[in-house]
Computed example of a mutant assay.
Amino acid sequence: MRLHVVSGKGGTGKTTVAAALALALAEEGRRTLLVEVEGRQGIAQLFETEALPYEERRIAVAPGGGEVFALAIDAEQALLDYLQMFYKLGGAGRALRKLGAIDFATTIAPGLRDVLLTGKACEAVRRRRRSGGYVYDAVVMDAPPTGRVTRFLGVNDEVAGLARVGPVHKQAQSVMRVLKSPETAVHLVTLLEEMPVQETVDGVAELRAAGLPVGSVVVNTVRPALLDETALADAARDPEAVAQALATAGLGAARGAAGGTPTKAVRALVAPLLEQAREHAARLELEGAERAEVAALGLPVRELPLLAEGVDLAGLYLLAEELRKQWTE
C-alpha cells in the first residue's frame, strides 16, 4: 500500500494517528509524505514546528534515517496548479486569483475543492524520480472525519460522470484509479466508546458500498486493565485484607505496629478505593463490548495506548514505534 487515508470521528485522535503512521512507515531510510487537507495546521502543532506552507517540507527524521515530509494542501493554490497543468494559463492564473475567481469557483461548486485536494494527494502518490522510482515510498493523508470521508474520496466519481470528456474527466478518472486501487487503504480511528465505534461501523459500510478500500481500524488511547474480575471480587469480599495490604505496602501503618497494622485513616480509604475499582471494572466491561463490535468488522485492528502525559513529540515517536510493530506482525 502506498496511499494511507486516515479518518475517524472528531476527537478520536486521527491526526495523531496519521502522524505516527507516517513516522512508522518512514523506517529504514524510506520517505513518506504526510498530507493535511482541512487547513487546521494540526500536523505543525504535533511536530512542534511553524505553520506549514503550500510546499512539501521535511519535518521529521525517523529511526533508521527515514524522512517524513509534510504538505498542507491549499485548495486555491491547487487550482492554480491544475489550471497551469492542463491549460497553461501562466500569468492569467495569477490574475484569476487576484480577481477572486478561484474563491468564486470553489464556492459555487463545493465538490471542486475536494477534487483539488484529493487530486494533489494522488499526484504525490504517482510522482516518480527521473531514475524511475517513486519520490515517496508512502503518502499518508489526514482526511476529513468519518461522516464525510466517503463523499470526500468519492467526489471524483461524481465529477467524472458530469464531465464526460476533456481534462477534467481524465483527471477525475485518474484520481479514482488511485483511490480504488489495491495500493490504497482507508484506516479508521476510534475509541472504545459507543459513539465512535458506531460511527466507525457506519463508515466501514459506506466505504465498502462506494467501492473504496478499507484498511484497518486503529483503536486509540487504550487504557491498561488494572484489575480483573477475580481480583475485584476478592477485594470486595474482604475489605480488611485490602486495608492490611495497604498498610503492608507502607501506606499509613500504625507506628511501631507489628506486620504493618492499618490505621483508622487507611481503613477509611478502602471503601472509596473499592468504588473506583468497581467503576474501572464496569468501564472494562463496556470496552470489551465495543472491542467485540470492532472485531466483528473483520478488519485488522491496531491498538495504541493512552499516554498519561499527553501526546508531545516524544510521545508521537512512541506511538509510531507501536504502530510499526503491529503493522509488521
Rank of each mutant, 00 (worst) to 15 (best):
V155G: 15
V61R: 07
L323G: 02
V197L: 09
E28Y: 03
A209H: 09
V301M: 05
E229N: 13
L80A: 12
A314F: 04
G111L: 14
Y134A: 15
G100W: 00
E290G: 04
V189S: 03
L307D: 03
A26V: 04
E56G: 12
R164G: 02
S131F: 08
G203S: 15
L313W: 13
A257N: 13
T230G: 14
E206N: 14
V168L: 09
L207Q: 10
V301H: 12
A138L: 12
G132E: 04
E67A: 11
Q84Y: 12
A295Q: 14
E279Y: 15
A92W: 03
R324L: 04
A281Y: 01
A209E: 14
S216A: 15
F47Y: 10
G161M: 08
L251T: 02
L273R: 01
V159Q: 03
L323E: 00
P53W: 01
G119N: 05
L286F: 07
A20W: 00
A19T: 09
T49S: 05
L246V: 13
A78Q: 09
H187M: 13
N156W: 07
G298P: 00
T32Y: 03
I43F: 00
A308D: 05
Y87A: 12
D234S: 11
A19C: 14
I59E: 01
L227C: 08
V6K: 11
E206R: 09
T106F: 05
A241M: 13
K14F: 04
R283S: 11
T261A: 05
A209V: 08
V189L: 03
P196C: 07
Y317S: 04
A18D: 07
P182Q: 10
E38H: 03
M176D: 15
A243K: 07
A245E: 02
V17I: 04
L246T: 10
A295N: 13
E199H: 06
T200K: 10
A292Q: 06
T184G: 01
A308Q: 01
A20P: 13
F86K: 12
R291V: 08
R164L: 15
A60Y: 05
F152S: 06
Q84C: 06
E56F: 00
M1G: 14
G13H: 14
L33P: 05
T106P: 01
T32Q: 13
T184F: 04
H169V: 05
T230I: 13
A243W: 10
A233D: 02
Y136C: 08
R324T: 00
G250S: 12
T49P: 01
M176A: 10
R223N: 08
E50L: 05
T49F: 03
E158V: 15
E309L: 12
V17Q: 02
E123L: 14
G252A: 03
R31L: 11
T248K: 05
E329K: 10
Q84I: 11
